[in-house]
Design a protein around this nucleic acid. Structure first.
Lengths: 246, 246
DNA sequence: GAGTGGTCTAGACCACCCC
DNA sequence: GGGTGGTCTAGACCACTCT
């Protein structure tokens, strides 16, 4: 989905693709921060010495990947997880039959751990590397619906504590973005059905072995670098995982 | 996702959008059939009296929706579910850790039914309207993995029998396409975790009440018209539902 | 009114496919 | 070589937002 600058040259690289990479590098370098406007198409065209149409196409691609957001008459902005409309962009659990509703979060604990084999493989870390593990419950309309565990390399989130997360309000990606400049660009999920273990049963207030939706996620930052592993256990009575296929 | 020509005029409709609608109407009318090439951009530009760039943008949009497929040097083609590469386009269940594999199908029965409230609502039919119901098992590498029921208005598939489907080989959408000219463009799915009932347990060879992934789908044809309702029960040991978030 | 993204055009040239 | 889609340009004009 996202591009890989890659060493294996595709034998021909369109100009707009090169511009796209240059813009991406400026985003990685922090020249333009989430929520801010990037320079206008005309300015970028002058800067890169190409036509406006070529810049336009590069921006079109980045907008299609939700990395940039166009707003007519105002400018082009760097995507962010901190705005109300987009803070739960990756959350696909919604109430049956009704509109998407944002949950509130209750934290269980925030601990330092060592990467298991599964997590080390997913996040491209060494086995046993230090990671932070965040466990929490997402509550929809007063009802606990998702129990999840978020795991991220400790090196990426120095000084992380439960208190800091709780102060931040909003989604955890919003927190990662503002506190550590860590931006989640895309994610891959794998869903399975599992019986509730005791821990999940207690937190979600269901009986042990009740069927739960297990959502495993790996989230990526720029350059398709995996940075977060997550497992969510969701009860699906009154709620379901919504997906569009095209 | 797909456009609605709509009566509520958006106060301004770009030319490329109008061209897109004209092309879509030709697709609905059957002027160009699945798998065939549509006229070249230059021809279409002449036909609609617009520039090639405008036709190009209209085709870009249709290609982004997987309604058309571009092939450099050859032409632009109408998408189809009949080719090996695309016949299981909407199937998201894949083996853990390995590549996508196409399943084989075992049919259980094909019956005429009356639309339940749920199905009538989903397919925009009258309660009790005649529908065809197809039940089958999808088998991956010798192992039964999905038990599903496909429901479609009987009016859309006259003379449907199990024998006809079995003769057709390939996916059921491929069959609908070739036998009835019915083309599935997009779909919405809702996933839940449910305990296996006796019927599912027997067909998937799991114990009763084992957790299964329940995948409810509504599939749409041109003009966002819902035409198929489907419920799949999937065992998720060794298999999972894969999804990309952007 | 000035500035931004959005549309539309016309034309040149490139990459790919097939004859 | 001739056809197709793909890239790139330059310029005109439109729609939207803010001041």
């Amino acid at each position: 989905m996202t591009d890989t600058p890659a060493l294996s040259a595709p034998s021909f690289r369109p100009l707009y693709d090169q511009i796209k990479i240059l813009i991406t590098q400026s985003l990685i370098g922090g020249e333009w921060k989430p929520g801010e406007a990037i320079p206008s198409e005309i300015e970028l065209a002058a800067r890169y010495q190409v036509s406006q149409g070529t810049v336009r196409k590069a921006i079109d691609l980045l907008a299609a990947e939700n990395i940039l957001v166009r707003r007519q008459g105002k400018g082009t902005f760097v995507s962010t997880h901190t705005e109300p409309k987009t803070q739960y962009r990756f959350l696909r659990i919604i109430p049956d039959g009704s509109e998407k509703v944002n949950p509130t979060t209750t934290f269980i604990d925030v601990k330092k751990n060592r990467a298991s084999a599964e997590i080390a493989r997913a996040l491209d870390l060494k086995l046993g590397a230090p990671v932070m593990s965040i466990r929490r419950v997402l509550v929809f309309a007063g009802k606990p619906v998702i129990l999840d565990e978020v795991v991220i390399s400790a090196a990426l989130v120095p000084g992380l504590t439960m208190e800091k997360i709780q102060e931040s309000k909003g989604s955890i990606y919003s927190f990662f973005e503002t506190a550590y400049g860590l931006r989640m660009i895309r994610a891959e999920e794998r869903l399975t059905a599992v019986p509730a273990n005791e821990f999940a049963a207690a937190h979600l207030k269901v009986r042990k072995n009740a069927p739960l939706l297990c959502v495993d996620r790996i989230a990526f930052t720029y350059g398709d670098k995996p940075v977060e592993w997550r497992r969510g256990l969701c009860l699906t009575e009154g709620y379901s995982y919504y997906n569009e296929l095209a």
